[in-house]
Write a protein that binds this DNA or RNA. Structure first.
Length: 446
DNA sequence: TTAACTATGAACGGTATA
DNA sequence: TATACCGTTCATAGTTAA
């Protein structure tokens, strides 16, 4: 991975541009430089054809790159106004809605069904359509930065507990229409008891949970559930309140469910698949370990939620779509589109994990897809020439979808919750880079 | 029997929101 | 105050191959 190079790039840039960010540069200015540096690491890839670009880019050697950075920085500054702050400032604009239903959820699941209207900024209007996803509860300022880069589109925050039996608080930035959405059918079970009927028999009255918490990448251990069992066995009947609280705290933390008398267990991989809207055994086979199944699933989309947002594409593209899927994981976007009945004509899927690529490839074959699947490993290697070559072969992308790594944003991370500049999460800037490149190329082709 | 590799268990706070 | 969180790291058990 060349991510580690990013950090080393940041310092020289602040040094070579003292007029813009000297040692006294504010946090906001430095943040801009960092953002620019993320793009800069792929600056050559960013520029598709020098001959087609404005003169400012056409200079010799490294000077070209420097001009490019300057241009980017000034553009960002102009966009948001000088002096605003991306981190920890008190002038943040983006707040999480309550209830977290974004621009609406299927009317069957809530009484609250306000009619939303939104006007997209001109720069955000496609083609292509784009759809970006990440954790809602990111450090302060992260969603402001994401939104600013993605053409100032307002994020849509949705908790998947309105679609299935497990919570999943996520933000989505997209330029799709928001009217006339429809959900996947059948609607998935929305309570723990409906989703996991076998647990009903053992569920004690004092465990009042009806929804699971967010399905994460790790599960509770057998030792933990054994400890809980022993703690409960000391009491015949209802345990005292302090024991109840201990057990419930662990249940909530690890998403444990009741599978026997005094017996709790973490969800099985196929239960996680079901809750997230994937076909049973989607992640099975191909030599993947149980641990890795949890990891791949924990990193994935909730299919029903994403499909609801993507459903508007069905009427727009009756003949099917060409899809660029970045950080595609186990193929949540592809599964969502397939379940919506939208034909996948050409899919360029970029995913760093080999087992995930295998999972997606075998799903592609099992579902008898008639389109063409091209899988690539590294978004950082996807440059303008390769994109243009791909797009020339089938006429551009209709949708660019992806959820970039959340490792450095997620609340569970006690070690490296470094925000968008973190090692993995900085790949967001590659999502933006590639999206902007495709917009640029498609704009030229029209 | 080793050694190398793989899978699992357990400990590890802090931020943000209500 | 209470609750939730697409996680990381290291030790060790378990497995494979020579």
């Amino acid at each position: 991975m060349s991510c580690s190079l990013v950090i080393s790039v940041i310092i020289p840039i602040t040094n070579v541009l003292p007029d813009l960010a000297g040692p006294e540069a504010s946090v906001a200015e430095l943040t801009d430089f960092i953002c620019a540096a993320q793009i800069a690491k792929s600056a050559d890839a960013y520029l598709p054809h020098e001959s087609k670009l404005p003169n400012i880019y056409i200079e010799n050697g490294t000077h070209k790159k420097r001009k490019f950075y300057e241009c980017e920085i000034l553009k960002r500054k102009k966009q948001r106004g000088y002096g605003s702050n991306s981190f920890g400032g008190d002038n943040e604009t983006i707040r999480l809605p309550k209830p977290m239903i974004g621009f609406g959820v299927p009317s069957e699941v809530t009484e609250l069904c306000p009619v939303f209207h939104r006007a997209l900024p001109d720069a955000a209007i496609g083609p292509p359509y784009f759809y970006y996803e990440n954790v809602a509860l990111a450090p302060k300022g992260v969603w402001d930065t994401i939104s600013r880069f993605l053409y100032d589109v307002e994020p849509e925050f949705v908790d998947s507990k309105y679609f299935c039996a497990a919570a999943r608080k996520r933000g989505y930035v997209h330029n799709l229409p928001i009217n006339n959405r429809f959900p996947l059918l059948p609607l998935p079970p929305r309570t723990i008891h409906d989703a996991l009927p076998l647990t009903r028999k053992w569920w004690p009255e004092w465990d009042t949970r009806t929804k699971l918490n967010c399905l994460q990448t790790c599960i509770g251990s057998a030792k933990l559930t054994e400890r809980i069992r022993k703690a409960l066995e000391r009491w015949d009947g209802v345990p005292p309140l302090n024991v109840q609280k201990y057990v419930l705290d662990e249940c909530r933390k690890w998403n444990l469910v009741w599978v026997g008398r005094n017996k709790l267990a973490p969800l099985e991989p196929d239960e996680v698949e079901m809750l997230l809207g994937f076909p049973r055994n989607h992640t099975r086979g191909g030599g993947i370990s149980r641990t890795d199944r949890y990891k791949s699933l924990g990193n994935s989309f909730q299919v029903d939620t994403v499909a609801y947002h993507l459903s508007v594409l069905k009427d727009l593209f009756p003949g099917g779509i060409n899809l660029l899927s970045l950080f595609s994981g186990i193929g949540g976007a592809e599964v969502a589109l397939h379940r919506l009945g939208i034909r996948l004509k050409n899919v360029v899927s970029v995913e760093i994990s080999e087992v995930n690529r295998n999972i997606q490839r075998s799903w592609w074959e099992q579902t008898n897809q008639t389109g063409n699947l091209i899988d690539l490993a590294d978004v950082q290697q996807l440059n303008g020439d390769r994109l243009e070559q791909l797009m020339n072969s089938f006429g551009g992308f209709d949708l660019i979808i992806g959820g970039s790594p959340c490792n450095n944003l997620a609340g569970s991370n006690r070690v490296s919750r470094d925000g968008l500049e973190g090692k993995e999460s900085s790949l967001f800037f590659d999502y933006f880079r590639i999206l902007d490149l495709v917009k640029c190329i498609m704009g030229r082709q029209q």
